[in-house]
Design a binder for these strands. Structure first.
Lengths: 226, 226
DNA sequence: ACACCGGGGTAAAAGTCTGTAAAAACAGCG
DNA sequence: CGCTGTTTTTACAGACTTTTACCCCGGTGT
C-alpha cells in the first residue's frame, strides 16, 4: 500500500502512530527532525508526508515550505489543538490537511486515505498478463491455463499474480507473504508452501514436463517466463 | 472564482459565513435543509459543497451519502467539535475535509482553497453507470440487468452502486459499510455479507458462469468490470 | 559414502471466514 | 396498535486458510 513518511520529533508517539498505520496497511517510514524529514520527503519515495508542526530545529512550517519548494506531494500537518494561526498558515502554504494533536490514529488513517484517494489517479492498468500457457486477467480475477479456465481461491490467485508479474525473477517467501497474504512472514509459517502446492496441482506442466513454478532452495519461488 | 454551495440550517450563521467567503472572492449559494442542498449539489453548478452535519430532516451524513451516490464533487463537513465518530464516518464516506464548528471564516476559506487546489480537474459523471450487463441510474436509483429491471431494496442499491463505481477494484467491507450503510463496520457484523447474498440472488451470472461480484477472502468484494 | 539438519511437499486436522436461510428487530403506515 | 416490507442478528453448513505432522531432499561436514 501507500508509503507514508512520518516526520515527528516525539520518537515514542511517532512509533505508536507508525505501528497503528502499519497494521492498517500503510508502509511507514519515520524521520525525527525537520532536516532529514524534508530530505526524505523530496526523495520521491513517499506518497504522502505527515508533518508535526512543533519540532526543534526547523519548524514544521519551515519544513513544509521547503517541501513545497521542491514537490507537490500531499502533506498532512499535525499540530496542537486550537493553534489556529499555525493551521491557517499551514493551509495557505499548501498543506493538504491538518489534524489536531493528540489525535486518534484511526482518524489520521481515515484522513490519509481521503487525501490519497483524491491525489492518486488510478493507474488503470488493463490487467492483462500472459506468461507462457498462463493468462491472467487481474481486473477480473480470472486465470486460464492453455485457454482452460482455472478454479482458484482468492489467495491462490493473489500468489499466482505476484509470481506472474515477476516471472523470471526469484520471489522470496517474505515478499510473497507480504504481497499476496498481506502480512509479514512469520517463522515456521508454511502457508506459502501449502498454497503453492495446491496451485501446482491445479496448473498443468510445461511442455518440457517441468512445473511452471520452480522452487529455489532457501530463496523462494520463480515462475518460468515465456 | 469557484462556486461554493453552503448547506446549513442555521440561517444567520450561514449568512455570515457566506458574506465572508464572498468578500474573499468565492461565489456562494445557500441551502437551508438537506433535501434542497443535495438537489443543488447534484445540479453540477458548484465546485464544492460545505455541509453541516447537524440538521433537521436528513442528517449531514445522509446528505453526504446521497451526494456521493451521484457525484464526486468535493465536500467539506462542518460539525461540532470533538464529535469523533461523525468525523470518521464522514471521512470514510468520502468527505474531503472536516472543520469543527464554530470555526474561523478565514480557516474555512483556507481549507476550501486547499481542497479546490487539489481537485481542480476531476472528470464529471452524469450518474449513469454501466458495468458489463449491469446498468445503474444513480439519480433515479434504478438498476437493470441485461435490460431487465431489478427489484432492489435501497440498501442493496447502495451496495451495488459502491461496487459498480469501484468495478475492478477490491472494496473492503469497512469501506462498503461506511459508504453504503453509513456506519463503521463493527466486529461480527454480517450485514454486508447478507445483503451481498441477496444481491447475488437477484443478479444473474456472467457469461463465463461466475458471479459478477467476487469475494476476495479477508479483503472484501470486487465487481468484475465489463 | 554416510549421517545430519533445516527446508520444502503434501495430506489432513484445526481454525477462520463466508453463504444463506430463518428468526428477530425496526420502520412506515393506515 | 397490527401489518408489511426491510434491515440486522443468529445459526449452521460449507469453503478457504493456516497449522501440524511426517516424509523426503538438498546441502554440508566427516
Amino acid at each position: 500500500m501507500a508509503a507514508v513518511l512520518l516526520i515527528d520529533d516525539d520518537v515514542e508517539l511517532a512509533g505508536m502512530l507508525a505501528d497503528y498505520l502499519r497494521r492498517d496497511g500503510f508502509a511507514v517510514d519515520l524521520a525525527h527532525d525537520g532536516e532529514s524529514g524534508v530530505q526524505a520527503a523530496l526523495s520521491g519515495n513517499f506518497a504522502i508526508a505527515v508533518l508535526d508542526v512543533m519540532m526543534p530545529g526547523i519548524s514544521g512550517i519551515e519544513a513544509l515550505r521547503r517541501i513545497r519548494a521542491g514537490s507537490r506531494m500531499p502533506v498532512l500537518m499535525l499540530t496542537a489543538r486550537g493553534d489556529d494561526m499555525d493551521r491557517i498558515v499551514g493551509l495557505e502554504l499548501g498543506a493538504d490537511d491538518y489534524v489536531p494533536k493528540p489525535c486518534l490514529p484511526r482518524e489520521l488513517a481515515a484522513r490519509l486515505r481521503a487525501i490519497l484517494r483524491r491525489s492518486s489517479s488510478p493507474p488503470q492498468d488493463n490487467g492483462e498478463l500472459t506468461v507462457g500457457p498462463l493468462r491472467l486477467h487481474a481486473a477480473q480475477r480470472r486465470a486460464e491455463w492453455r485457454g482452460q479456465q482455472l478454479e482458484l481461491t482468492s489467495t491462490e490467485f493473489n500468489l499466482l499474480e505476484v509470481l506472474a508479474r515477476n516471472a523470471g525473477r526469484i520471489v522470496g517467501k517474505d515478499e510473497l507473504s507480504a504481497q499476496a497474504l498481506g502480512r509479514p512472514l512469520a517463522r515456521y509459517d508454511r502457508s506459502i508452501d501449502v498454497h503453492l502446492s495446491s496451485i501446482r496441482q491445479k496448473l498443468g506442466l510445461l511442455d518440457d514436463g517441468r512445473s511452471p513454478i520452480q522452487t529455489v532452495f532457501r530463496q523462494g519461488y520463480q515462475m518460468i517466463p515465456g
